[in-house]
Simulated assay, not measured.
Amino acid sequence: MDNLFVFMLLLSAFAVPAELQQRVLLYGIVGALVLRGIFIALGAAVLANQSWAFLLFGAILLVTAVKILRDQASGHGNDVDVSSMRSVKLLRRFMPVTDTYQGPRMFVQQGGRRAATPFALVVSAVLVTDVVFAVDSVPAVYGITGDPYLLFATNAFALLGLRALYFVLEGALSRLVHLGYGLAAILAFIGTKLVLHWAHGVWPGVPEIPTLLSLGVIVVVLALVTATSLYATRGDQRGEEHPEHQTGHVSHPGGVPRSRADAGTDTPPRQDRR
């Protein structure tokens, strides 16, 4: 769900044309699948030899939960400043960026020089977010089960369904204004579970959280934030007017409109004919 929400924000921030959204999502999903496989394999190798890795993974999740909670509470949880992303800065440092999309092409010849298109920028931004989510999500799934094959299979099925789910839930996700609080609570809970698991190995008297209880907590939290979000945005058609969900300032790279709404701001007003 968090991948889907960020993909939606990036597609809007880069004003990706409708005909290119499927391709961007495909690149993002394939990148996420490859990275999840790598991180799951590395995590399995580390956990098999180093028990302190559970403590490290738990600490990562707790820190991430605090960050998400702070961003959500400050109202900046949905801000996307694409011009400050390292991938965008790095690409723009080495080559110019065209002002318009050139179909699915990432690079074109412009004025005798090789130039990147906005499509290349959005793909690089999506791949960078894939890395971030892989770092956060792999420790989280190891808090549920330690079987790497099961972890990769569940991640693969979840990611492969994102492409179709995006277009189904594009409007509904904008109403989940409390999703950040739910994600923070889930990550904090799983982080605590991993820390307790490590502590149980050192001090057998420390209790562990059962897997079924973990799944129950996740389901309850997601159901709760969904219900509260829908209630909070019950007067909005798509939740875009709700103050907790307003997207902050979005800087645009290389002349790309900041959002779909901004893409037409330069069009002169149409005069009524009488």
Rank of each mutant, 00 (worst) to 15 (best):
Met1Trp: 01
Asp2Ala: 01
Asp2Arg: 12
Asn3Gln: 13
Ser12Asp: 15
Phe14Gln: 07
Arg23Glu: 09
Arg23Val: 14
Val30Lys: 09
Ala32Gly: 15
Arg36Cys: 15
Arg36Ser: 14
Gly37Tyr: 09
Gly37Arg: 03
Ile38Pro: 11
Phe39Leu: 14
Ala41His: 05
Leu47Tyr: 05
Ala48Arg: 10
Trp52Pro: 00
Ala53Lys: 02
Gly58Ile: 07
Ile60Met: 12
Leu61Ile: 01
Leu61Tyr: 02
Val63Gly: 13
Ala65His: 10
Val66Met: 02
Ile68Ser: 04
Arg70Cys: 02
Asp71Leu: 13
Gln72Arg: 05
Ala73Met: 14
Ser74Thr: 15
Asp81Trp: 12
Val82Gln: 09
Met85Gln: 15
Arg86Ala: 15
Val88Ser: 14
Lys89Pro: 11
Lys89Asp: 09
Arg92Asn: 10
Arg93His: 05
Arg105Phe: 03
Val108Trp: 03
Gln110Cys: 08
Gly112Ala: 14
Ala115Cys: 14
Ala115Trp: 04
Ala115Leu: 00
Pro118Phe: 05
Ser124Asn: 06
Ala125Gly: 11
Val126Gly: 10
Asp130Leu: 08
Val131His: 11
Val131Ser: 12
Val132His: 10
Phe133Met: 12
Ala134His: 02
Tyr142Gly: 01
Thr145Tyr: 07
Leu150Lys: 01
Ala156Pro: 02
Phe157Ala: 11
Ala158Cys: 11
Leu162Gly: 06
Leu165Gly: 15
Phe167Arg: 13
Phe167Ser: 14
Phe167Tyr: 07
Leu169Glu: 05
Glu170Thr: 07
Ala172Ile: 09
Ser174Lys: 09
Leu176Gln: 03
Leu176Thr: 00
Leu179Gln: 02
Tyr181Thr: 04
Gly182Thr: 04
Gly182Asp: 07
Leu183Glu: 08
Leu183Tyr: 06
Ala188Glu: 04
Thr192Tyr: 04
Lys193Ser: 11
Leu194Ser: 05
Leu194Gln: 11
Trp203Ile: 05
Gly205Ala: 07
Val206Ile: 08
Pro207Arg: 13
Glu208Tyr: 01
Ile218Gly: 00
Leu224Arg: 01
Leu224Cys: 00
Val225Lys: 03
Thr226Met: 00
Ala227Gln: 02
Ala227Cys: 00
Leu230Trp: 08
Leu230Pro: 09
Tyr231Phe: 13
Ala232Phe: 06
Thr233Asp: 14
Arg234Phe: 10
Arg238Ile: 07
Gly239Ser: 03
Glu241Lys: 07
Val250Asn: 08
Val250Ile: 15
Ser251Tyr: 08
Gly255Gln: 03
Val256Pro: 02
Arg258Leu: 10
Ala261Trp: 11
Asp262Pro: 05
Asp266Val: 04
Thr267Asp: 09
Pro269Trp: 06
Pro269Asn: 04
Pro269Ile: 11
Asp272Ser: 03
Arg273Asn: 06
